[in-house]
C-alpha cells in the first residue's frame, strides 16, 4: 500500500514538472468544440452529448498510451529502474499508483469538456443516469490502467515505441467507437471492436446520457472491467518475464 501511495504522489509531482503530460487536457476542450460544431452545424442537437463524451475517452486513452505506456521505458532511460526493482516494495504497486494518478488527471477532462460545452455552445452534460455514468467512467479508468500496464510492457520490448504510439490513437478511436458507434463500421470490423473495451465504454457512456433506461447495464459494465483485467494480466505476465530477463542479462540500465 505504501508503494501505491508513493507511486501516486510521485506521478503527480512528475506531471506538475512536465507540461507534456497535460497535453490531453489542453486538447480535450478543443475536440469537444470541434465535435459540437459539426453536430450543431448539421442540425443534430441529439448527438451533442456524444460530442462531449468522446474527448474524455480520447484523453484517457492518450494518457494511457503515451504517459503511462512509456513509464518503464522512461525510468530505464533515467536509470531509476534498477533502484526501483531493488527497493523492498514491489514495482507493480508503485506502477499501479502512478497509473492511477494519471487516470485521475485524465478524468479532469470530463469537467473540462463540460465547461467548454457550456461556455461555447450552452450545452451541458445531460445527467440522465448519473450513477451509471459515474460507474462507467470509473470502470473505464480502471480498464485504461490495465491497458497502460500492457502498453508499458510492450513498449519496453520495442526499439521505437513512439512510432507505434503515434499510430495507435485514431485506429483505436475508430475501432473503439469513441464518437461513432461500432454499428457504423463495416461488418467485418465489428468483431474486432467487440474485444476492445473502449467500444463497450463508449456505448455505455452514450447510453447513460440518454433518457431511456440503460439496457443490461451491469453485464456491459462487467465486460469493461473484465477486458481491463485481461489487459492488466497480459501486461503483468509480460512485465514479469521481461524484467526477469533484463535482470538475468544485466539489461536493466540502457547503457
Amino acid at each position: 500500500m505504501h508503494g501505491l501511495v508513493a507511486g501516486f504522489r510521485l506521478e503527480l509531482r512528475l506531471v506538475r514538472a512536465n507540461p507534456d503530460a497535460l497535453i490531453p487536457l489542453v486538447t480535450a476542450p478543443l475536440f469537444a468544440i470541434i465535435f459540437l460544431a459539426i453536430f450543431r452545424q448539421s442540425g443534430r442537437p441529439d448527438l451533442e452529448s456524444d460530442a462531449l463524451m468522446a474527448p474524455v475517452l480520447m484523453s484517457l486513452w492518450w494518457i494511457a498510451l503515451l504517459q503511462a505506456g512509456t513509464m518503464i521505458t522512461g525510468d530505464r532511460w533515467q536509470a531509476v529502474l534498477e533502484p526501483m526493482i531493488a527497493a523492498p516494495t514491489t514495482l507493480a504497486s508503485v506502477l499501479l499508483g502512478r497509473v492511477a494518478s494519471l487516470m485521475c488527471v485524465g478524468l479532469v477532462s470530463f469537467f473540462e469538456v463540460w465547461a467548454a460545452g457550456w461556455l461555447f455552445f450552452g450545452v451541458s452534460i445531460p445527467f440522465e443516469h448519473p450513477g451509471a455514468l459515474a460507474l462507467t467512467l470509473l470502470a473505464t479508468a480502471f480498464a485504461m490502467a490495465g491497458a497502460a500496464v500492457a502498453f508499458a510492457a510492450l513498449f519496453v520490448m520495442t526499439r521505437n515505441a513512439y512510432t507505434f504510439i503515434n499510430s495507435a490513437s485514431f485506429p483505436f478511436y475508430v475501432l473503439g467507437g469513441v464518437l461513432v458507434p461500432v454499428a457504423f463500421l463495416p461488418g467485418w470490423l465489428q468483431p474486432v471492436s467487440s474485444v476492445i473495451f473502449l467500444s463497450w465504454s463508449a456505448d455505455l457512456l452514450r447510453a447513460s446520457l440518454k433518457e431511456p433506461d440503460v439496457d443490461d447495464f451491469w453485464i456491459r459494465l462487467a465486460v469493461v472491467i473484465v477486458l481491463g483485467v485481461i489487459s492488466f494480466a497480459i501486461g503483468r505476465v509480460l512485465l514479469h518475464h521481461i524484467l526477469r530477463r533484463m535482470r538475468a542479462n544485466g539489461e536493466l540500465a540502457t547503457a
Binding site: T163, F170, V180
Partner: peptide
C-alpha cells in the same frame, strides 16, 4: 504505422 493512422484519422 503512419499511413494506417492517417487513414483511420480521416475515416474517423
Amino acid at each position: 504505422g503512419w499511413f494506417v493512422r492517417v487513414l483511420f484519422q480521416v475515416s474517423f
